[in-house]
């Protein structure tokens, strides 16, 4: 294996839990239910998944939910905005920790 990530492995997702089949089965049932049309549309859920995929930087998920977003009718513009939501939350999460830095600075400074 030349790399830790192989695009072919995405299709093997259902096999990932084969050594614990009962728990895995429950996971996939839950997973399917999560992405079914509900209060949020399938398109909206695919866009949320796309944003989260970028936040957790999962290449399998980015591949899968880019395709899923398009097939649920999302436009490239909507997908780009979803990625920016992930970027903003990640960046904001870093920035807001600056408050902790300031607290420490204030505590130990004259």
């Amino acid at each position: 294996m030349d790399t830790y990530y192989d695009p072919e492995d995405l299709a093997k997702f259902p096999e990932a839990g084969k050594d614990a089949p009962e728990i895995t089965q429950k996971f996939f049932e839950y997973y399917q239910a999560v992405f079914a049309e509900g209060e949020l549309s399938e398109r909206e859920k695919a866009l949320i998944a796309l944003a989260v995929a970028h936040a957790v930087q999962c290449p399998y998920c980015i591949d899968a939910y880019t395709r899923a977003s398009l097939e649920k009718g999302a436009t490239p513009g909507e997908m780009a905005e979803a990625v920016h939501v992930a970027v903003a939350i990640r960046g904001g999460a870093s920035l807001v920790h600056g408050v902790q830095m300031q607290n420490v600075v204030e505590k130990i400074s004259l």
């Binding site: 549309s41 399938e42 398109r43 395709r67 398009l70 097939e71 649920k72 009718g73």
Partner: peptide, 11 residues
């Protein structure tokens, strides 16, 4: 592109 269309009613 090389992907399937969305559900017709939703679209």
């Amino acid at each position: 592109g090389a992907f399937l269309p969305p559900d017709q009613c939703r679209a």
